Computed example of a mutant assay.
Amino acid sequence: MNYIVTGAAGFIGFYVTKKLLEQGHQVLGIDSLNDYYPVFLKHDRLKELGIVAGDVDYGVPLGSHSFQLFKFVQLKLEDKEALASLVNNYIQECGFIDRIIHLAAQAGVRYSIQNPDAYITSNIAGFLNILELCRSLAVPHLVYASSSSVYGMNSKRPFSVQDQVDHPVSLYAATKRSNELMAHTYAHLFNIPVTGLRFFTVYGPWGRPDMAYYKFSLAISKGEPIDVYNNGEMLRDFTYIDDITDGVLKASERLPSPAPGFDPLKSGPAESSAPFRLYNLGNNRPEKLKNFIETLETALGTKAVKRYLPMQEGDVAATEADIEDTRRDLDWEPRTDINAGLKAFAEWFNGYYNG
Rank of each mutant, 00 (worst) to 15 (best):
H167N: 13
S112V: 05
M182T: 08
A8I: 02
V161L: 00
G10H: 00
Y36T: 14
G232Q: 00
E294Q: 12
R277K: 15
Q26E: 12
L300C: 09
Y144Q: 01
S136M: 13
L342N: 08
M153D: 12
I220Y: 01
G50C: 08
A321T: 00
E233H: 07
G261V: 05
I338H: 00
D315C: 09
M1T: 11
E253P: 02
L83Y: 06
Y203E: 02
A84F: 14
V305G: 07
L171N: 10
N350K: 15
N231S: 13
A317E: 13
D227Q: 13
V248Y: 08
L197M: 07
G50V: 02
P269M: 03
I241Y: 00
D237R: 03
R277V: 06
D325P: 05
R236M: 09
A104F: 04
E132V: 06
V52R: 14
F67Y: 15
L181S: 11
A118M: 15
Q106D: 04
D117G: 14
F67R: 05
Y58T: 01
E271K: 10
T201I: 10
S112N: 12
A304N: 02
Y186T: 11
R198T: 04
L181A: 11
D337C: 04
L131A: 08
G204K: 01
K215W: 03
N280M: 00
N283Q: 11
A340T: 15
K76C: 14
A340L: 14
I244D: 01
Y279A: 03
R110W: 08
I323Y: 10
S32K: 15
F11R: 01
G314V: 03
V150T: 02
Y203N: 04
W332R: 04
D57E: 14
L289N: 10
Y279S: 01
T319P: 00
G126I: 14
I130T: 09
V194W: 03
G196I: 01
K266H: 13
Y111M: 09
D322A: 00
S112D: 04
E253Q: 10
N191H: 15
H141G: 06
L103E: 02
A304M: 03
V60T: 11
I293P: 01
S272G: 10
P38W: 09
R45W: 02
F216L: 00
R177M: 12
E324K: 10
S160W: 08
D35L: 11
H25C: 03
Q68K: 12
N123F: 10
L49F: 03
P158C: 07
F127S: 01
R99W: 06
V60F: 05
K156Y: 12
D227Y: 08
E324N: 12
M1D: 11
A346C: 08
A270Y: 10
F70H: 05
P205G: 10
F40M: 14
T195D: 08
A53F: 05
G355W: 03
H43N: 15
G301C: 08
Q92R: 15
T6D: 07
T295E: 12
I12V: 00
T17C: 09
L249F: 13
Q312D: 12
G59Q: 04
H184M: 11
K176T: 05
